[in-house]
Design a binder for these strands. Structure first.
Lengths: 344, 344
DNA sequence: GAAACCTCGGAAACCGATTTCCGACCACCT
DNA sequence: AGGTGGTCGGAAATCGGTTTCCGAGGTTTC
C-alpha cells in the first residue's frame, strides 16, 4: 500500500490537476510526464526528477477514468450480495475487500436485497462500469442459479454456490464442520448426543444434520432422537431442549447455531443440568456475541468467513489474470473449544 | 430503476460492444448513435429506431469511463468506514447505498480498520477515481478530526461527526434518546432509576449518562447512585447489577446498550426480581438479537441508523448538486416499547 | 571531417464516449 | 431556375491519460 502525500494544492480553479498542468509546470510534454511517472521510456534523471517534483507540488493524481480508457482495465470489482448484508456477509465483505485492496482494486458494493430485479439492475450497472470481475455472495448456502450466462467478466460465488458446476464457487465445508463437532464430543467422552438446529428447508440445517448422523454412525453410535428442526433462535433452543429432555437422556447436544445453543444452555440450567458436566454443548458460527456471552462460553464451529472472502477475492484476481479455477472450492471449518465442552 | 435486458450477444471477439459497433450495424456515425441513445439532436424516427434496435441486438452498454471523461462526473461515491465495518455501520451502509443507488450512483466501499494510513490511502484512491463525493462513517460517536482539509469533493460524516463545525455531519441525538428512555420510565410510574452503561472514555456512554441525569433533575428526581460505567457487555450488566442491588433499591434500570440490559435482566432474575413488575428495564440500540431474545423482550431506544444513512446520502447528493448543508445535523431516536417496561 | 550510433523527449494516434458545428439534401417560394 | 429555409446526420474536437514512432542533438568511430 503505497503512501504518498495528499494534494497540497489544487490546480487552477479548483479543478483537479491534469497531466497537462504537470507538463506545463515541468516544461515538458505530456508524453514525457507519463513516462516519468510510470518509469517508462528513457529520460534523463534530471528531467524525471523535475517532473516528479512538479507532480508532487501540484498534488497530481492521475485520472483513473482516462487510464481505464486506454488500458481497458478498471482495477475495480463488484460485490453483489444477493441477500441483505447481514451477519454472515460482513466478514466475507471485509475479507474480500481486504484482499482486493491489497491488489489495488476498488470494490463496488451492491446490496440486491433478495430482489432479482435489483440484482439484474446492479449487474447491468457493473458491466457498464466495466468492472474487472464480480463476486456474488449471500446469506443462504443453498446453491443458486447463476447470476447470468456467459458474462464477459469473471465471476466468483462466495459462501453461496452457483448451481452451474463450471462456475467458480468458494463455500464452507459445513458437513466437515459438523463432523469436527461430533469428533470433539466423542473425544471428550460423550456418546448420547442430540442435535437441535434450524428450519429443515434451510440447506445449512439439513447438511449439518446429515453429517452429524453419518459421523455418529461411522463411530458405531446413533443420534439420540431425530434431529430437531425448528428456527435459528434462542427461543427454539429453549423449547427444543424441553421437548428433548422430556423423552430422552443425553450427555451432549450439538446445535446448528450459537443462538440455538445459547437457548439450550439457558434451558439446561433451568432444569438443573450443569454444562458441561452433565451435558456438553457445541454451537455453530462462533459468533462472539453469543458464544462468549453464553454461560459457560460456548465451544463452537467457526466457518472462517473472512478467510473465505479473501480466498474468493484471490481466486477472482487469479481468474482476471488468466488463471481461472472453475468449480466448487470447499474450505474447512475450525473448532473453537471453550468451557461448554471441557470443564476447567 | 430502469430495467433492460442483459447483453444477449457480446460484440466481436468477446470484447465489450462499443458505440462504433452499434454505429456500424445501424449504418450511421457514432455521433448519431450517441444522439439516438440519449435523445439529443434531431433524428428521423426511423433512424433513431434503427440505432436503438442495433444497440439492443448487440447488448450495448455505454462505457462509463468514457462518459466520465467527457462529462467530468463519475456518478460514484466513496464510503469510508474509519473503524471496522461492524454492527452499527451495516444499517448505515445499507441506508446510504439504497439512497445512492436510487440516484444511479455506485458506491466504493473502503474499510480503513481504524488505521490512519489506510484511511489516507483510501482517500487518495477515491480522489484518483474522481468520486463525486465521500461519506465518512465509523463506530464511535466521538467527533473526529476532518479526514482532510480542502478536499475537491463534498464530504458528509455519518454517525460520527467532524470536529470542524463547518463540515456536514449527520449524527444521532443520543441525549434525546436517553431522555426518551427516562420519560418513558417516568410515564410508567418509576422513580428510583439507575443507569448502567459502557466505558466512561466512550463519548456515547458519557453523553447518554449526562442526559439521563439532567432529565431526572428536570423531573425533580435524582439518579439512584452514580452512573455505573464499565463495558458494553452482558457480563458487565450482570456484575453491575449485583453491585447496584447490594447498596441501593431501584424500580427501574436504564442501560447504555441492549447487551448490558440483557445481562442485567439475567442478574435480576437470578436474585428473584421480576421484570418489569419489580424492576423496569430499558436498553439502547434496539438490536433485535438482544432485545427480542431477552426474557422478557426489551424496551429499547432505536437510533434509526438506516434512515440516518439515507439522510447522509441525500445530503451528499444535494451538496453534489450545488445545495450544500454545512454543519451538524442531528436526528432523533425512537422509543420501542416491549415487555420489559410494561406488563401484559 | 563525415558517418554511424545513442540518448532523450516531443508529436500524434488511440481508448470510447459527448457535443458542437457545418454541410448535404429536400421542399418551397418567387 | 435560383435562392431560401429547415431537417437530418456526419466530421471533428474534446476529455486525460498511454504508447509508439521518429527526429534532433551530441558523442563516438574510422
Amino acid at each position: 500500500m503505497p503512501t504518498r502525500k495528499l494534494p497540497e494544492k489544487v490546480g487552477n480553479s479548483g479543478r483537479p490537476t491534469t497531466i497537462s498542468d504537470v507538463a506545463q509546470l515541468a516544461g515538458v510534454s505530456i508524453g514525457t510526464v507519463s513516462k516519468a511517472l510510470n518509469g517508462r521510456g528513457s529520460l534523463r534523471e534530471e528531467t524525471r526528477h523535475r517532473v516528479l517534483s512538479a507532480a508532487e507540488q501540484l498534488g497530481f493524481l492521475p485520472n483513473k477514468a482516462a487510464m481505464t480508457l486506454s488500458s481497458g482495465r478498471t482495477y475495480t470489482v463488484g460485490m453483489i450480495t444477493t441477500d441483505t448484508i447481514g451477519r454472515f456477509s460482513i466478514p466475507l465483505l471485509m475479507g474480500a475487500e481486504d484482499a482486493l485492496g491489497a491488489g489495488e482494486m476498488s470494490v463496488f458494493l451492491c446490496d440486491a436485497r433478495d430482489d432479482p430485479i435489483r440484482e439484474q439492475y446492479y449487474l447491468r450497472t457493473l458491466l457498464g462500469r466495466r468492472v474487472d470481475g464480480i463476486i456474488v455472495t449471500g446469506r443462504r448456502t443453498q446453491a443458486r442459479p447463476p447470476i447470468a450466462a456467459d458474462l464477459p467478466v469473471p465471476v466468483v460465488y462466495a459462501f453461496i454456490s452457483s448451481a452451474d458446476p463450471r462456475d467458480c464457487s468458494v463455500v464452507v465445508d459445513e458437513a466437515g464442520g459438523a463432523r469436527l463437532a461430533v469428533d470433539h464430543l466423542l473425544a471428550v467422552g460423550r456418546s448420547r448426543i442430540a442435535h437441535i438446529t434450524g428450519p429443515e428447508r434451510h440447506h445449512s440445517a439439513t447438511v449439518r444434520a446429515a453429517a452429524t448422523e453419518s459421523r455418529l454412525t461411522e463411530a458405531g453410535l446413533e443420534l439420540v432422537g431425530a434431529p430437531l428442526f425448528g428456527e435459528w433462535s434462542e427461543a427454539w433452543g429453549r423449547q427444543a431442549t424441553k421437548i428433548l429432555l422430556g423423552t430422552h437422556d443425553v450427555d451432549a447436544i450439538f446445535c446448528g447455531s450459537d443462538q440455538i445453543a445459547r437457548g439450550v444452555a439457558d434451558a439446561l440450567q433451568a432444569t438443573g443440568r450443569r454444562v458441561p458436566d452433565d451435558v456438553a454443548l457445541v454451537g455453530f458460527d462462533n459468533w462472539d456475541v453469543m458464544s462468549l456471552a453464553c454461560q459457560p462460553p460456548l465451544t463452537s464451529i467457526d466457518m472462517e468467513l473472512e478467510a473465505l472472502g479473501r480466498t474468493a477475492a484471490d481466486l477472482l484476481l487469479a481468474t482476471i489474470n488468466g488463471e481461472p479455477s472453475p468449480g466448487r472450492h470447499s474450505r474447512p471449518c475450525r473448532l473453537v473449544v471453550r468451557d461448554s465442552t471441557v470443564s476447567r
